[in-house]
Protein backbone atom coordinates (compact mmCIF):
# COMPACT_ATOMS: atom_id res chain seq x y z
CA UNK A 1 0.00 0.00 0.00
CA UNK A 2 1.53 3.34 -1.06
CA UNK A 3 1.89 6.17 1.44
CA UNK A 4 -1.34 8.09 1.85
CA UNK A 5 -1.59 11.26 -0.19
CA UNK A 6 -2.75 14.27 1.80
CA UNK A 7 -5.98 16.09 0.93
CA UNK A 8 -3.94 19.13 0.17
CA UNK A 9 -1.73 17.31 -2.30
CA UNK A 10 -4.72 15.66 -4.00
CA UNK A 11 -6.51 18.99 -4.48
CA UNK A 12 -3.32 20.70 -5.70
CA UNK A 13 -2.66 17.85 -8.15
CA UNK A 14 -6.22 18.05 -9.44
CA UNK A 15 -5.89 21.79 -10.10
CA UNK A 16 -2.57 21.26 -11.89
CA UNK A 17 -3.95 18.43 -14.01
CA UNK A 18 -7.05 20.37 -15.02
CA UNK A 19 -5.04 23.50 -15.84
CA UNK A 20 -2.66 21.51 -18.01
CA UNK A 21 -5.35 19.98 -20.21
CA UNK A 22 -6.76 21.81 -23.23
CA UNK A 23 -9.47 19.38 -24.16
CA UNK A 24 -10.48 18.38 -20.66
CA UNK A 25 -10.25 15.13 -18.72
CA UNK A 26 -13.07 12.68 -18.13
CA UNK A 27 -13.88 11.54 -14.65
CA UNK A 28 -12.32 8.17 -15.44
CA UNK A 29 -9.11 9.90 -16.61
CA UNK A 30 -8.97 11.84 -13.37
CA UNK A 31 -9.70 9.01 -10.99
CA UNK A 32 -7.27 6.67 -12.70
CA UNK A 33 -4.37 9.05 -13.22
CA UNK A 34 -4.35 12.06 -10.87
CA UNK A 35 -2.23 11.90 -7.74
CA UNK A 36 -4.33 11.12 -4.67
CA UNK A 37 -7.07 9.39 -6.70
CA UNK A 38 -5.02 6.92 -8.70
CA UNK A 39 -3.67 5.29 -5.55
CA UNK A 40 -7.24 4.38 -4.56
CA UNK A 41 -8.62 3.68 -8.03
CA UNK A 42 -9.91 0.19 -8.86
CA UNK A 43 -9.74 -0.50 -12.61
CA UNK A 44 -12.60 -2.99 -12.40
CA UNK A 45 -15.14 -0.67 -10.86
CA UNK A 46 -16.41 -0.06 -7.38
CA UNK A 47 -15.16 3.51 -7.24
CA UNK A 48 -18.27 5.09 -5.76
CA UNK A 49 -16.56 6.60 -2.73
CA UNK A 50 -13.75 7.95 -4.90
CA UNK A 51 -16.36 9.53 -7.17
CA UNK A 52 -17.98 11.21 -4.21
CA UNK A 53 -14.57 12.46 -3.18
CA UNK A 54 -14.14 13.99 -6.62
CA UNK A 55 -17.53 15.72 -6.39
CA UNK A 56 -16.56 17.30 -3.06
CA UNK A 57 -13.14 18.31 -4.34
CA UNK A 58 -14.71 20.03 -7.35
CA UNK A 59 -16.87 22.11 -5.04
CA UNK A 60 -13.96 22.97 -2.77
CA UNK A 61 -11.93 24.12 -5.75
CA UNK A 62 -14.75 26.15 -7.28
CA UNK A 63 -15.34 27.74 -3.91
CA UNK A 64 -11.88 29.28 -4.13
CA UNK A 65 -12.89 31.07 -7.32
CA UNK A 66 -11.09 28.60 -9.59
CA UNK A 67 -13.10 28.34 -12.84
CA UNK A 68 -13.43 24.56 -12.98
CA UNK A 69 -15.55 23.86 -16.08
CA UNK A 70 -17.56 20.80 -16.96
CA UNK A 71 -18.12 20.38 -20.65
CA UNK A 72 -20.98 18.10 -21.63
CA UNK A 73 -20.24 16.30 -24.85
CA UNK A 74 -23.05 14.91 -26.97
CA UNK A 75 -23.73 11.30 -26.15
CA UNK A 76 -22.07 8.83 -28.48
CA UNK A 77 -24.72 6.69 -30.11
CA UNK A 78 -26.80 6.46 -27.01
CA UNK A 79 -23.79 5.54 -24.90
CA UNK A 80 -23.03 7.15 -21.55
CA UNK A 81 -22.83 10.91 -21.76
CA UNK A 82 -19.30 12.20 -21.46
CA UNK A 83 -18.41 15.06 -19.23
CA UNK A 84 -14.96 16.51 -19.50
CA UNK A 85 -13.43 18.74 -16.88
CA UNK A 86 -10.84 21.48 -17.21
CA UNK A 87 -9.71 24.83 -15.88
CA UNK A 88 -9.21 27.32 -18.72
CA UNK A 89 -5.96 29.08 -17.97
CA UNK A 90 -7.15 32.41 -19.35
CA UNK A 91 -9.93 32.50 -16.79
CA UNK A 92 -7.78 31.18 -13.96
CA UNK A 93 -4.99 33.74 -14.18
CA UNK A 94 -5.37 37.17 -12.72
CA UNK A 95 -5.61 39.53 -15.72
CA UNK A 96 -2.05 40.57 -16.59
CA UNK A 97 -2.82 44.28 -16.54
CA UNK A 98 -4.14 44.24 -12.96
CA UNK A 99 -1.46 45.57 -10.65
CA UNK A 100 -1.56 47.22 -7.26
CA UNK A 101 0.65 49.93 -5.82
CA UNK A 102 2.20 49.50 -2.35
CA UNK A 103 -0.32 52.05 -1.00
CA UNK A 104 -3.20 50.12 -2.51
CA UNK A 105 -1.89 46.90 -0.99
CA UNK A 106 -1.73 48.60 2.42
CA UNK A 107 -5.33 49.73 2.07
CA UNK A 108 -6.49 46.27 0.93
CA UNK A 109 -4.63 44.68 3.86
CA UNK A 110 -6.62 46.86 6.19
CA UNK A 111 -9.83 46.08 4.31
CA UNK A 112 -9.21 42.36 4.65
CA UNK A 113 -8.30 42.67 8.34
CA UNK A 114 -11.59 44.41 9.00
CA UNK A 115 -13.26 41.03 8.46
CA UNK A 116 -11.11 39.12 10.91
CA UNK A 117 -14.18 37.84 12.68
CA UNK A 118 -17.12 35.88 11.37
CA UNK A 119 -18.62 35.04 8.07
CA UNK A 120 -16.30 36.72 5.56
CA UNK A 121 -13.07 36.16 7.49
CA UNK A 122 -12.08 33.04 5.52
CA UNK A 123 -12.68 34.83 2.23
CA UNK A 124 -10.63 37.81 3.37
CA UNK A 125 -7.78 35.61 4.48
CA UNK A 126 -7.66 33.87 1.13
CA UNK A 127 -7.96 37.14 -0.77
CA UNK A 128 -4.95 38.38 1.18
CA UNK A 129 -2.98 35.28 0.16
CA UNK A 130 -3.74 36.00 -3.48
CA UNK A 131 -2.63 39.61 -3.03
CA UNK A 132 0.58 38.46 -1.37
CA UNK A 133 1.11 36.16 -4.31
CA UNK A 134 1.76 39.23 -6.48
CA UNK A 135 4.89 39.91 -4.46
CA UNK A 136 4.10 43.58 -3.78
CA UNK A 137 5.19 44.75 -0.35
CA UNK A 138 2.71 46.85 1.55
CA UNK A 139 3.63 50.50 1.93
CA UNK A 140 3.73 50.80 5.70
CA UNK A 141 3.02 48.23 8.33
CA UNK A 142 -0.31 49.09 9.89
CA UNK A 143 0.56 49.32 13.52
CA UNK A 144 -1.95 50.22 16.15
CA UNK A 145 -5.00 50.35 13.97
CA UNK A 146 -7.57 47.60 13.89
CA UNK A 147 -10.95 48.41 12.38
CA UNK A 148 -13.39 45.54 12.57
CA UNK A 149 -16.55 44.82 10.61
CA UNK A 150 -18.97 42.20 11.73
CA UNK A 151 -21.89 40.32 10.30
CA UNK A 152 -23.40 38.41 13.17
CA UNK A 153 -26.93 38.20 11.84
CA UNK A 154 -27.71 34.60 10.99
CA UNK A 155 -29.37 35.78 7.78
CA UNK A 156 -26.17 37.30 6.39
CA UNK A 157 -24.57 34.19 4.86
CA UNK A 158 -27.66 32.72 3.22
CA UNK A 159 -28.55 36.12 1.76
CA UNK A 160 -25.05 36.65 0.43
CA UNK A 161 -25.13 33.23 -1.20
CA UNK A 162 -28.54 33.93 -2.76
CA UNK A 163 -27.31 37.27 -4.15
CA UNK A 164 -24.39 35.45 -5.74
CA UNK A 165 -26.64 32.78 -7.22
CA UNK A 166 -29.32 35.33 -8.20
CA UNK A 167 -31.96 33.24 -6.50
CA UNK A 168 -35.18 34.45 -4.91
CA UNK A 169 -35.32 34.04 -1.13
CA UNK A 170 -38.21 33.59 1.27
CA UNK A 171 -38.01 34.73 4.86
CA UNK A 172 -40.21 35.71 7.76
CA UNK A 173 -40.07 39.39 8.62
CA UNK A 174 -41.30 41.10 11.74
CA UNK A 175 -42.15 44.67 10.94
CA UNK A 176 -42.12 47.00 13.96
CA UNK A 177 -45.60 47.65 15.20
CA UNK A 178 -46.85 44.36 13.81
CA UNK A 179 -47.17 41.41 16.13
CA UNK A 180 -47.08 38.78 13.44
CA UNK A 181 -44.20 37.54 11.30
CA UNK A 182 -45.08 37.77 7.63
CA UNK A 183 -43.47 35.76 4.83
CA UNK A 184 -41.65 37.84 2.23
CA UNK A 185 -40.49 36.71 -1.20
CA UNK A 186 -37.55 38.83 -2.23
CA UNK A 187 -35.12 38.98 -5.13
CA UNK A 188 -32.06 40.04 -3.11
CA UNK A 189 -29.69 42.53 -4.75
CA UNK A 190 -27.34 43.89 -2.11
CA UNK A 191 -26.27 43.74 1.52
CA UNK A 192 -25.49 47.09 3.07
CA UNK A 193 -24.39 48.19 6.48
CA UNK A 194 -25.75 51.54 7.56
CA UNK A 195 -25.59 52.96 11.04
CA UNK A 196 -23.78 49.82 12.17
CA UNK A 197 -26.66 47.56 11.10
CA UNK A 198 -26.95 45.21 8.17
CA UNK A 199 -29.78 45.56 5.67
CA UNK A 200 -30.73 43.56 2.60
CA UNK A 201 -32.01 45.46 -0.38
CA UNK A 202 -34.02 43.84 -3.13
CA UNK A 203 -37.27 43.52 -4.97
CA UNK A 204 -40.15 42.51 -2.72
CA UNK A 205 -42.00 40.25 -5.13
CA UNK A 206 -45.22 40.48 -3.13
CA UNK A 207 -45.26 44.27 -3.15
CA UNK A 208 -43.55 44.43 -6.57
CA UNK A 209 -41.29 47.18 -5.36
CA UNK A 210 -37.77 47.77 -4.13
CA UNK A 211 -37.50 47.39 -0.38
CA UNK A 212 -34.78 47.44 2.25
CA UNK A 213 -35.05 45.01 5.17
CA UNK A 214 -33.18 44.97 8.45
CA UNK A 215 -31.45 41.64 8.97
CA UNK A 216 -32.09 41.74 12.71
CA UNK A 217 -35.84 41.64 12.02
CA UNK A 218 -35.68 38.51 9.90
CA UNK A 219 -37.29 35.77 11.95
CA UNK A 220 -36.15 32.19 11.43
CA UNK A 221 -34.19 30.84 8.50
CA UNK A 222 -33.73 32.43 5.09
CA UNK A 223 -34.76 29.94 2.45
CA UNK A 224 -33.08 30.12 -0.95
CA UNK A 225 -35.43 28.99 -3.72
CA UNK A 226 -34.49 27.65 -7.14
CA UNK A 227 -36.24 30.57 -8.78
CA UNK A 228 -33.82 32.89 -10.59
CA UNK A 229 -34.17 36.52 -11.48
CA UNK A 230 -32.62 39.10 -13.78
CA UNK A 231 -30.37 41.62 -12.10
CA UNK A 232 -31.68 45.09 -12.87
CA UNK A 233 -29.35 47.79 -14.19
CA UNK A 234 -27.66 50.13 -11.79
CA UNK A 235 -25.76 49.85 -8.56
CA UNK A 236 -28.15 48.30 -6.03
CA UNK A 237 -25.81 48.75 -3.06
CA UNK A 238 -25.39 52.44 -3.72
CA UNK A 239 -29.09 52.89 -4.32
CA UNK A 240 -29.82 51.18 -1.02
CA UNK A 241 -27.35 53.36 0.84
CA UNK A 242 -28.75 56.49 -0.85
CA UNK A 243 -32.23 55.43 0.22
CA UNK A 244 -31.16 54.87 3.82
CA UNK A 245 -29.28 58.17 3.85
CA UNK A 246 -32.42 59.96 2.69
CA UNK A 247 -34.51 58.32 5.40
CA UNK A 248 -31.84 59.22 7.94
CA UNK A 249 -31.88 62.86 6.86
CA UNK A 250 -35.68 63.05 7.00
CA UNK A 251 -36.04 61.51 10.48
CA UNK A 252 -35.04 64.08 13.06
CA UNK A 253 -35.61 63.88 16.78
CA UNK A 254 -35.37 66.76 19.20
CA UNK A 255 -33.85 65.67 22.51
CA UNK A 256 -33.04 67.20 25.85
CA UNK A 257 -29.89 65.61 27.25
CA UNK A 258 -28.79 65.76 30.88
CA UNK A 259 -25.35 67.34 30.83
CA UNK A 260 -22.31 65.24 31.71
CA UNK A 261 -24.01 61.93 31.22
CA UNK A 262 -23.44 59.00 28.91
CA UNK A 263 -26.38 60.22 26.81
CA UNK A 264 -24.87 63.69 26.46
CA UNK A 265 -21.52 62.21 25.42
CA UNK A 266 -22.85 59.71 22.94
CA UNK A 267 -26.03 61.17 21.49
CA UNK A 268 -24.47 64.62 21.74
CA UNK A 269 -21.59 63.66 19.47
CA UNK A 270 -24.05 62.13 16.98
CA UNK A 271 -26.29 65.17 16.88
CA UNK A 272 -26.25 68.86 16.20
CA UNK A 273 -27.09 71.65 18.66
CA UNK A 274 -30.61 73.09 18.44
CA UNK A 275 -32.33 75.98 20.23
CA UNK A 276 -32.57 76.12 24.05
CA UNK A 277 -29.67 73.74 24.63
CA UNK A 278 -31.43 70.90 22.90
CA UNK A 279 -29.89 68.47 20.46
CA UNK A 280 -31.23 67.30 17.11
CA UNK A 281 -30.35 63.71 16.26
CA UNK A 282 -31.13 61.88 13.03
CA UNK A 283 -32.08 58.21 12.80
CA UNK A 284 -33.13 55.66 10.21
CA UNK A 285 -35.44 53.39 12.14
CA UNK A 286 -37.80 54.69 14.77
CA UNK A 287 -38.13 51.43 16.70
CA UNK A 288 -34.39 50.84 16.92
CA UNK A 289 -33.69 54.44 17.84
CA UNK A 290 -36.34 54.20 20.55
CA UNK A 291 -34.42 51.21 21.98
CA UNK A 292 -31.22 53.27 21.97
CA UNK A 293 -32.92 56.21 23.67
CA UNK A 294 -34.71 54.06 26.27
CA UNK A 295 -31.34 52.65 27.33
CA UNK A 296 -30.34 56.09 28.55
CA UNK A 297 -33.24 56.15 31.03
CA UNK A 298 -33.68 59.58 32.64
CA UNK A 299 -30.71 61.06 30.81
CA UNK A 300 -32.81 61.81 27.72
CA UNK A 301 -36.17 63.47 27.25
CA UNK A 302 -37.59 63.16 23.75
CA UNK A 303 -39.51 66.28 22.72
CA UNK A 304 -40.40 65.31 19.17
CA UNK A 305 -41.58 63.57 17.11
CA UNK A 306 -44.53 62.33 19.12
CA UNK A 307 -44.25 58.78 17.72
CA UNK A 308 -40.76 58.57 19.19
CA UNK A 309 -41.98 59.93 22.53
CA UNK A 310 -44.66 57.23 22.55
CA UNK A 311 -42.25 54.48 21.52
CA UNK A 312 -39.73 55.36 24.24
CA UNK A 313 -42.43 55.60 26.94
CA UNK A 314 -43.83 52.27 25.85
CA UNK A 315 -40.40 50.65 26.15
CA UNK A 316 -39.65 52.12 29.54
CA UNK A 317 -43.07 51.05 30.79
CA UNK A 318 -42.41 47.52 29.54
CA UNK A 319 -39.05 47.43 31.35
CA UNK A 320 -40.70 48.64 34.56
CA UNK A 321 -43.39 45.98 34.24
CA UNK A 322 -40.89 43.20 33.53
CA UNK A 323 -38.67 44.18 36.47
CA UNK A 324 -41.33 45.48 38.80
CA UNK A 325 -42.95 44.32 41.99
CA UNK A 326 -41.34 42.77 44.99
CA UNK A 327 -40.88 39.16 44.14
CA UNK A 328 -39.38 38.55 47.55
Amino acid sequence: MPAAVSNEERLFSLVLALLATETGLTKADILSSVQGYRQRYRPNGGNASLERQFERDKEDIRDLGVPLESIELPADQGAVQYTRYRIPKGEYDLPADVTFTPQEIALLDLAALAWREGSLSGESRRALLKLRSLGIESEEPLIGFAPRLRARDAAFDPLRAAIEHRHVVVFGYLKPGEDRVRKRRVAPLALVQFGGRWHVHGVDLGARARRTFLLSRIAGAVEETAEGFETPDGEPAEEALDGLTAVFAANRALLELQPDTDAAARLGSRGEPAAEGRVAVHYTDLALFADDVAAFGPEVLVLEPQELVDAVRERLAAVVAAHGGDRG
Partner: peptide, 30 residues
Protein backbone atom coordinates in the same frame (compact mmCIF):
# COMPACT_ATOMS: atom_id res chain seq x y z
CA UNK B 1 4.33 23.01 -14.78
CA UNK B 2 0.76 24.22 -15.32
CA UNK B 3 0.78 27.44 -13.27
CA UNK B 4 2.73 30.64 -13.47
CA UNK B 5 0.28 33.42 -12.58
CA UNK B 6 -1.61 34.41 -9.47
CA UNK B 7 -5.18 33.11 -9.33
CA UNK B 8 -8.20 35.36 -9.66
CA UNK B 9 -10.29 36.27 -6.68
CA UNK B 10 -13.51 34.42 -6.07
CA UNK B 11 -16.62 36.58 -6.26
CA UNK B 12 -16.95 36.34 -2.49
CA UNK B 13 -13.34 37.27 -1.84
CA UNK B 14 -13.72 40.33 -4.02
CA UNK B 15 -16.98 41.25 -2.27
CA UNK B 16 -15.32 40.98 1.14
CA UNK B 17 -12.42 43.20 0.08
CA UNK B 18 -14.71 45.77 -1.55
CA UNK B 19 -16.93 46.05 1.52
CA UNK B 20 -13.92 46.21 3.85
CA UNK B 21 -12.46 48.88 1.63
CA UNK B 22 -15.53 51.07 1.90
CA UNK B 23 -15.42 50.74 5.65
CA UNK B 24 -11.75 51.64 6.12
CA UNK B 25 -11.88 54.31 3.42
CA UNK B 26 -14.33 56.33 5.48
CA UNK B 27 -11.67 56.75 8.16
CA UNK B 28 -9.46 59.79 8.14
CA UNK B 29 -6.27 59.75 6.08
CA UNK B 30 -7.00 56.44 4.43
Amino acid sequence: VAIDDSPRFSAREAAALIAGLQYVAALPAN
